[in-house]
Nucleic acid binder design. Structure first.
Lengths: 213, 213
DNA sequence: TATCTTGTTACTGTATACATATCGGGTCAA
DNA sequence: TTGACCCGATATGTATACAGTAACAAGATA
């Protein structure tokens, strides 16, 4: 733990929240965490303030920090926001991607078709597909906002990492539709397809959460 | 300076950056600022980290903090992002506003028509108009993202606070068009009108910046 | 019984000393 | 002349002590 302690603590806390080590509503007291991680309060403080800013923690009585209790309605809010922003990004990308970027997108799509049913491999290709579109929009501000919100969804996704075969196929189809619209330069169709795609993944996730609980 | 020192410092720094007291590229050293504001390094540190997070400061050599140099292209990025997010919000509001909220929006629009040419009064009404639409979208996540980006634009706007008469009239017309689309529940028209509205204010701002520089 | 007051406690907020990292310049040897 | 290395200056990063604040509970008072 020689350097970047605060950053490490922040990552550890996020992992802990995502994995359930720190339960929703649980208190995050500076002293307790300092002892747990064998550091002083200072880097803990910094990490907690960042958590608060990123909406993973909130303040309670005595200004203490608590793991934010997320409700199902929060999740819906969040995915709607991601859907709107990512579809805006995709619409821009449809009009702005360079020829090289379009070819790369096609290549990634092809990889997704060819990769078989291994969920982990597909997840990585999925990530690159979305990253490619993000780049193609040529708007760093929107990309940053999108990244921030996506990180928040990660907390919900992490425990339901695997996609079942059915969702994997429908994801492929949706990607193909998005890519087609982008390659045709049709911004508004792209927006619709991307919005539907995010909505589908939301539905899948909530179904998974239901069967878990 | 009895309480919430770090918050005060943060506000002071933002004001300073907006007003030009802290020039772009200028270093923000913890010790220097601590002496200047007669506090210790600790609250300064917190404020600087928040500034960095909010994209007003960046790190330089020796990890030192500097006022971020914003380029014209950054401003364009930023306004495009605000335009996309706010138009998404407006489109949602068109479909979701309660009857009461719609009436309130009409009332605010009417105030804007009636208030005459006092820029300061109109600015306040303008703020409420946009806030009302934000509320109407019923999506806290999008509203928060929007607020964050709007704060960033504030730095550019503050020195060009006043709207001239011509822009004031066109702003009124644009507001009317947006409100009409919302009241008809027409999401896509609302989206277009709001995007145009943000773009217009961007153009006005860049014109003002040109004549200044 | 209701309420106001006051003390205790459990937190974060701030000050300050010390640790650590990084850049730049100067020295010395090849 | 130039490259390697060391050392000092200048930043932030971290540890720790102390200050401040707000919630809660107990006891006094009406």
């Amino acid at each position: 733990m020689s350097e970047r302690t605060a950053q490490n603590i922040y990552d550890l806390l996020i992992d802990g929240i995502a994995s359930g080590t720190f339960a929703p509503g649980e208190q995050l007291a500076e002293v307790t965490l300092a002892e747990r991680f064998h550091v002083s309060r200072t880097p803990i403080r910094e990490a907690l303030h960042r958590l608060e800013q990123a909406n993973f923690a909130e303040r309670g009585p005595r200004r203490a920090f608590f793991v934010r209790k997320m409700q199902a309605s929060d999740l819906q809010d969040l995915f709607e926001a991601v859907g709107e922003i990512e579809s805006a990004i995709a619409a821009l990308a449809a009009r702005r991607m360079t020829e090289i970027q379009r070819r790369q997108l096609q290549a990634i799509l092809e990889e997704g078709r060819a990769c078989g049913d291994d969920a982990q491999t597909y997840a990585e290709i999925n990530r690159r597909f979305h990253a490619q579109i993000n780049q193609g929009a040529h708007n760093a501000t929107l990309s940053a906002s999108h990244a921030e919100l996506t990180l928040r969804t990660q907390v919900w996704r992490s425990r339901n990492f695997a996609l079942d075969g059915r969702r994997l196929d429908s994801s492929r189809r949706e990607h193909a539709a998005i890519a087609e619209a982008i390659l045709q330069g049709d911004g508004e169709t792209t927006r619709l397809k991307m919005r539907e795609h995010v909505a589908s993944s939301f539905i899948t996730l909530t179904d998974l959460l239901k069967t878990d609980g």
